[in-house]
Simulated assay, not measured.
Amino acid sequence: MSDFCASLWPEEPTPENLRNCSECGLDKHGSRMVWGEGNPEAPIMILLDNPGAREDRENKPFVCGTRQTLQQATHEVGLHVDELYVTYILKRKPTRAYNKEETREICMRHLIQQLHSKQPQYIVCLGNIAVQSFFQNPETDVKTLRGKVHHVRGYQTFVAYHPLAVRRRPNLWPLFLEDLKLVATYFNK
């Protein structure tokens, strides 16, 4: 990976009527709701499992490893922040054990709401959790779906490894770039 200076992307405020949502129980974990970041009107919606750390121990905003890796890769394939909107299956960062299947099912309702209101051209699912949740198939995975375009829920959908997996296993970096280049190619047609 090359030298790259990551930056904070603008965060979209959570809709007022959902700020105190407690339906899935993650509100009891003490993390705040993160609706999304980047350009809310972007043609490319990137879907991750849940928000990473947003602030350090002193409550100062910082760019976590997931966002740093994602920003570097999108920059390298020629995608601009104005073309991207990042959101999550879970809108809060889990901090302890929870009922994963039930919570994801509940939280997918927020994502469906976002899809209906934003109508992106493309969806990019990063990591198995995002893929399984969006594709509604707990048996599928990134390894078997990456490298091609899928039509899911009415959207052209791409699949790539999670940025944290790429950080932990640098041998995945070329595959990550390859998958994001595929997105850039479709977007720039």
Rank of each mutant, 00 (worst) to 15 (best):
H29K: 03
D56N: 10
V152E: 05
W35V: 00
F176N: 09
D3V: 02
Q113C: 06
V81A: 11
N39Y: 00
T14C: 15
T66R: 01
A165K: 11
H75L: 05
L79T: 00
T140Y: 01
W35E: 00
T144G: 10
Y186K: 12
P10R: 05
M1H: 13
P15F: 07
S7W: 11
A53I: 06
R19G: 10
R92G: 02
Q68W: 12
L177S: 02
Q121N: 08
P10I: 02
R67N: 15
L79P: 02
S31G: 13
K143L: 09
M108T: 13
D27V: 12
T140Q: 00
D82F: 05
R92P: 05
R153G: 01
Q119W: 09
G25T: 03
K91L: 08
T140C: 10
L145P: 03
H116T: 12
Q119V: 14
P51R: 01
L79I: 00
E139Q: 11
D56W: 03
L90C: 08
E83Q: 14
T157W: 12
G147P: 03
D56E: 07
T87D: 01
A160D: 15
S2P: 15
R168S: 03
K181T: 08
D3L: 05
E37D: 00
V149L: 14
H75A: 06
C24I: 06
H162G: 07
Q156N: 01
N59W: 06
H110Y: 11
V152G: 04
E11D: 12
G25I: 00
P120I: 03
S133A: 14
Q113T: 14
T74E: 04
D3F: 11
T14Y: 08
R146Q: 15
S31K: 11
W35K: 00
S133K: 00
V183Y: 07
T144I: 13
V34F: 10
N188T: 10
L177M: 07
Y98L: 12
H151L: 15
K189V: 01
I129V: 14
L175S: 11
S7H: 15
K143G: 08
V34C: 09
L47F: 09
L70H: 06
L115T: 09
P51C: 00
Y98V: 13
Q71Y: 13
L111A: 08
N17Q: 14
A165E: 11
K93N: 14
L175G: 12
P138C: 06
V166L: 06
L70K: 06
F135Y: 05
D179N: 15
E76L: 10
D3G: 09
H116W: 04
Y155N: 05
N128K: 07
P43N: 10
P10A: 10
T74C: 07
P120M: 08
N137L: 04
C107M: 11
F134N: 05
V63N: 00
G78C: 13
V81K: 15
R67T: 13
R67Y: 15
V159E: 08
K143F: 14
V142K: 02
V34P: 03
D179F: 03
A53T: 09
S7R: 14
D49S: 13
H116I: 00
L145N: 13
G30M: 04
L145Q: 10
L90D: 07
S31A: 15
V124K: 06
M45E: 01
